[in-house]
Simulated assay, not measured.
Amino acid sequence: MKTRIREAFQRFGEKWADNAPEILVGIGLFIIFLLIGILLRRLVVRRLFRKVHDRLPVVFAGRLVMLIMVLIGFVSFLNAVGLAGTARGLLAGAGVTALVLGFAFKDIGENLLSGVFLAFGRPFKIGDLIQVDSFMGNVQMLNLRNTQIRTFDGRDVFLPNSMLIKNPLTNYTKDGLMRHDFLIGLDYGTDVVEAERIILDIMNEQNDIEKREHLRPFIVIEEFAASTINLRIYFWINTLDMLTSFTILKYRVMLAVMNRLIAKGIKLPSDIVEFKMYEEERRLPISVLVDNLEIPNPPNTKRGSQPPSPDQKG
């Protein structure tokens, strides 16, 4: 087939001046098919939009129709200018190239077929938040070869379509619902039931948080840590009605919870750290506050002994 195509181009090059009318006809045919492709793409997009309210497969189908018409126009051009052997060679190999476009273009053919599966399988739509491997972002466009997503830090990432087919794909917003959570640590002397009531009151005051029966915020005790009782707060948001970003909403909720708990006198302690000094006569490099009286650099006491009281100071 390669030899036949090469010989056809050589013969065409030797008498291209004599074939000027055929060249003009071929160019005209190519332009006609190009215009037909544009019209068909618009028609397909318009008709599909009436039945499928998802922009992603509609746009992909329109591009696929345009690609097919361009290929037909190119073959018609070759046939019109006297390169019928070349056209027949291309058509003879179409069955193979349609699948993998030859071994040299295996990745291109693979991504094209993957794009077809993604467009009509519809695991996501434009605007959905998806994650593939370590890449996470909102879908911007599905092209013939790749899928464009925008990450939270504003980067546009183009993922090969085959990558989305071969790897697990997580869609966080397919049904419009997404769950968030955060952790908060309470002092061991805290009334946990009262703290939970305060937190839930705050969550119910947030307009962007779902409050339907099966989507209400809830709290669980995650662990009894060394210094705190750790509570994890779960809440759902509707991404279709979001007026702000997930990160800003989570920050606003966490800030409101922290401020309300502090205002109610509930302590949020940090981790307790134990210092050990094995030189008994060496003074500790700290100051101790006992009943609002500062004891600077108290001596290190032996095991079983007590630190000096405020009355004994001086």
Rank of each mutant, 00 (worst) to 15 (best):
I32R: 15
N146H: 11
G85S: 12
I165A: 04
V157D: 07
A226H: 14
L186V: 06
Y188R: 12
L118G: 02
V70L: 13
Q148L: 14
I202W: 13
R11N: 13
G154T: 11
D133W: 09
N79S: 12
L48D: 13
L129S: 10
R47C: 12
I130N: 02
K166R: 09
P296C: 00
E274V: 09
L71G: 07
T239E: 10
P57V: 00
E14S: 03
E7Y: 00
S76F: 11
S76K: 11
D153S: 00
L67S: 14
I221L: 02
I130E: 00
N230R: 13
V65S: 00
F224A: 02
R41T: 09
T86F: 07
P160G: 05
I198E: 03
S309L: 05
L29P: 05
D18I: 15
R47I: 15
D191N: 14
G95P: 03
L91W: 13
L34D: 15
D241C: 12
I32V: 13
D181A: 15
H53C: 12
V96L: 13
N167R: 02
M258A: 14
K125M: 11
I202M: 09
F135I: 15
A80H: 03
D187S: 10
F120P: 01
S287I: 00
Q148H: 13
L71Q: 08
G85Q: 11
K2T: 11
I68M: 10
I248G: 12
I229N: 10
L29N: 03
F30L: 09
Q131E: 15
T228I: 03
M141D: 15
L129A: 12
P160V: 01
G115D: 02
V52C: 06
T86V: 10
S134G: 12
V58I: 09
Q148G: 11
F152R: 14
G121S: 09
N230Y: 02
G37C: 04
G95D: 05
L112N: 03
K2F: 04
L159Q: 04
E223M: 15
Q312K: 02
F275E: 07
R50M: 07
L29M: 07
D107M: 14
R41S: 08
E274I: 12
F135Y: 14
F12G: 04
L64E: 04
L101R: 01
F30G: 04
E7F: 00
I108G: 09
E222C: 08
A225I: 04
A87P: 03
L90K: 02
A119S: 01
V116D: 04
F12T: 07
N111Q: 06
Y172L: 00
R46F: 01
G102T: 04
R55T: 10
I72Q: 07
I130A: 01
E280K: 06
N207G: 13
T247C: 10
D241H: 10
E223A: 14
L142P: 04
W236K: 02
P308Q: 04
L289E: 04
N167S: 06
L231Q: 05
L71I: 11
L91C: 06
E110F: 10
H53A: 14
P298D: 02
L43H: 09
S114K: 05
